[in-house]
Simulated scan of single mutants.
Amino acid sequence: MSDRQIDIKKILIIQTAFLGDVVLTIPLIQEIKIKYPDAVIDFLCIPSTSDLLKNNPGIRELIPYDKRNSGLRGLADIVKKIRKEKYDVVISPHRSFRSAAISYLSGAADTVSFDKSSFSFLYKSIVKYETGIHEIQRNLRLLLPLGIDQQRIIKPELNISVQEKRKIDSIFYEHRIREDEKFLVIAPGTIWFTKRFPEQKFINICNLLTGLETRIFLIGSKDDKKISGFIVNNSRFRNFINLTGTLSVMESAELIRRSKLIITNDSAPMHIANSMKTDVCAIFGATVPEFGFYPYGKNDKIFQTDNLKCRPCSIHGGAKCPVNTFECMMKIDEKEIADFVKMKLS
């Protein structure tokens, strides 16, 4: 880490992307607080991700921005609020034009983002978007203009409240789950269809686990309830506890923390599990780990289909397979995943 010290008192971080992106931005807060313990840090995010940050002791103020529904008036209101704060530095890991515009209009002495960001010329300090490294390491490069040179993967710290822990305690009590019980969590949903392991293949995994003395928790947002319900209703495995759509983000994080293993797509639960030090079974379809969004725990395992000419087809995934085969997911062997689960739960 650099010894360079700059007089910085107020910092704004802009990350208005999805939940997983916010998880991978949290190490910026941690590293800034080490170098500048007295600095004030505010965080601009969308309302649906704010729950993840509400207990973070490094953040003074969470600024929710409903970018999808507030239009130009909402953008103007956010800029007005930010300008009043007179930030010394605005840092934007999010690479959108909207984030660039907010940063440019913020009035901050310095604004920082990547050279690959939309309208990057609007930023005062531009950092090279490095490939071949984890997204956490890439985001931490944005701290170079602040004199912070941290090159390791820093585990995001998620701060779970007493109330959130008690919610999981009550679920354990209801289902008579012992504190030392080994159980599996499955997070079957994701926003992007081509990043989602097919429901029938999740069912096949669960069927292969029939007879295993364990419980399977299903988690996800309200949008994932149909997927989880289909898995429960069509599997021979009967020892499910389906909590999809009933837990907050941080309650889900606490459940993941207590689990032995999570099966997840390339999505937010994977990054939350790494933060909670829970082993990960990650399934990659349209995207590839080389993008930098891979699990980094020493016992984590990735399942994917290699040597497909059509893969990756996009950095985020999409609404449909562009070649109408979905081979990236369909060729993944459910038995290999089930065998890995059995090994981890034995």
Rank of each mutant, 00 (worst) to 15 (best):
M1K: 01
S2H: 01
I6Y: 03
I6H: 04
D7E: 11
Q15E: 15
Q15G: 03
L19D: 05
L19I: 15
G20L: 01
L24D: 03
L28Q: 12
L28D: 09
E31A: 07
I32W: 13
I32E: 12
K33C: 06
K33M: 10
K35I: 11
K35T: 07
A39D: 10
F43C: 13
C45I: 15
C45Y: 13
S48K: 13
T49N: 15
D51M: 10
P57N: 14
P64I: 10
P64W: 04
P64A: 07
L75W: 08
I78T: 15
V79N: 07
K80A: 09
K81F: 14
K86E: 14
V90D: 02
S92M: 06
P93M: 09
P93V: 11
S96D: 06
S99M: 08
S99C: 14
A100D: 13
Y104N: 04
S117N: 06
K124N: 14
S125A: 14
I126Y: 04
G132A: 05
R138G: 06
R138C: 07
R141H: 10
P145Y: 07
D149L: 08
D149W: 03
R152C: 05
P156Q: 09
L158V: 10
Q163P: 02
K167T: 15
F172W: 09
H175C: 03
R176A: 12
P188K: 03
P188N: 06
G189K: 05
W192F: 12
F193R: 02
R196I: 00
F197H: 01
E199L: 02
E199F: 00
E199G: 03
L208M: 01
L209V: 00
G211R: 01
I219T: 09
D224N: 04
K226E: 09
S228G: 03
G229T: 01
G229A: 00
V232P: 05
V232R: 04
F237W: 05
R238H: 05
F240S: 01
T244I: 04
G245Q: 04
G245F: 05
L247Q: 01
L255Q: 08
R257V: 04
R258I: 04
I262V: 13
A268K: 05
N274Q: 12
D279S: 14
I283Q: 12
G285F: 11
A286M: 10
T287D: 13
F293Q: 09
F293R: 11
G297L: 15
K298Q: 15
Q304H: 14
D306W: 06
G317W: 13
G317S: 11
V323R: 14
E327P: 05
M329E: 06
I332A: 07
A338Y: 02
F340C: 01
